[in-house]
Design a protein around this nucleic acid. Structure first.
Lengths: 222, 222
DNA sequence: AACTATCGGATAGCGCCGCTGTCTATAGTT
DNA sequence: AACTATAGACAGCGGCGCTATCCGATAGTT
């Protein structure tokens, strides 16, 4: 497969593919002569992954590169996981984060085994700090629902990863799931908000009440 | 409060405040003469809100403006909610979205009352399409866990909004909750991932699954 | 062997975005 | 009167994600 074919198959301009090559998002093709190279299905798939990470997942090119390097590395899964997490989180200096906000996050995370430097913990704390700055305080356990939901999603993520065969597949799923999972969840959350507010405010009159919130497909993790 | 004091209090350069004024993110101060104006606590709070939306929530200036306009409008809550949702979602043309992916989203949303044009539904479909393009298929009900979790969060959101007094407070909470809630959830999700994988892979040996509410000793790394 | 389309590679530039710096005329402060 | 701060207009800047142009070498065709 030549460059032009790769371009057509991936619906990506040649100049952009060259850019990805330059940025080490995409490995070079197999050289057939000093200035010719062949590409294959691996490259095509990789381009689609790049588009997913950047366009759908909203990663920067730099973050996408770190994430892809993590997949390609031969590191054990936990390290890959951690690199993926750090690559997609703003790296916050723990020292700059409000101690009170951190304490409130830790209260939400009570009983969880989470390291002090977990980027999610720090990010959550800075969100709580922002809520407080603009005068929104969680009187009623609002955020406890978020923590419970996060646990549910994390169980689903790990179930999926556990079920996959090799390190490569697990690693890619971890990384892709981390990035795209955020986007998927926020979409589903918007849909759920409409659903719940429709149930509460417009009553169950015009359409069937739909009492069973879940589908026929496999069981949710208990 | 003069401009310089507002700047100091909000930790925002004067030039940036002027920029926010120009961009209509911030209302002008009360004029005391053709080239003097006074600002108050409302302006300060607004600047903090802007920072929250942009820095923590990751909104663009344009999206932040739309969202703020929605709060300030006198529209009824459902309309405000919808504007907020649309303002923070990429607007996808339903026609460009893969029908199969849409069908799979609708399966996840079975029984939910969600309009066809709900931006979250479309966004979720494009995420599923991306998963498929890179060869990740949900064999095991992975995403059903996401839908259940989204429902949980939406209930928590609506509980909070219901408990608040006036339209203004509800509207701001809806909007801020929508934007910052995504960030909060993804942080908590990362923490939960570490927790769950720690439980599963490093066993419950060195530490207990712990009813103990606080983390003085994390030690969980690997 | 000649011809032409395409290739890879390097480099420069572009368009958008979120500010930031500079200027002027005026107002408050001492 | 001297000095500083202000509103408002406008130009510019730095980073990012590409995109366009040029080059010399080659592959495929004749």
């Amino acid at each position: 497969m030549k460059m032009s074919q790769l371009s057509a198959a991936s619906d990506t301009p040649v100049a952009t593919i060259k850019f990805y090559l330059r940025e080490n998002l995409l490995p070079g093709g197999e050289r057939s002569s000093p200035n010719q190279a062949r590409y294959d299905a691996v490259h095509l798939r990789r381009i689609r992954l790049i588009h997913g990470l950047i366009d759908v997942g909203g990663l920067s090119v730099a973050a996408a590169r770190r994430v892809i390097e993590a997949i390609d590395s031969e590191l054990p899964l936990p390290e890959t996981f951690e690199i993926a997490q750090r690559s997609v989180s703003a790296d916050l200096d723990p020292a700059t984060i409000d101690a009170g906000a951190l304490a409130r996050v830790d209260a939400l995370l009570a009983g969880w085994r989470v390291s002090e430097t977990n980027p999610g913990r720090l990010a959550a704390a800075s969100v709580l700090e922002t809520f407080e700055e603009i005068g929104h305080v969680d009187h009623r356990g609002w955020f406890a629902g978020y923590a419970a939901a996060a646990l549910l999603v994390a169980e689903a993520d790990l179930d999926e990863v556990d079920a996959l065969p090799g390190r490569e597949a697990k690693a890619e799923t971890v990384v892709v799931g981390t990035v795209l999972g955020d986007a998927l969840f926020s979409g589903l959350r918007r849909a759920a908000q409409e659903h719940v507010s429709s149930l509460r405010y417009s009553g169950s009159a015009d359409s069937e009440p739909a009492p069973s919130p879940n589908r026929e497909t496999p069981t949710t993790k208990e």
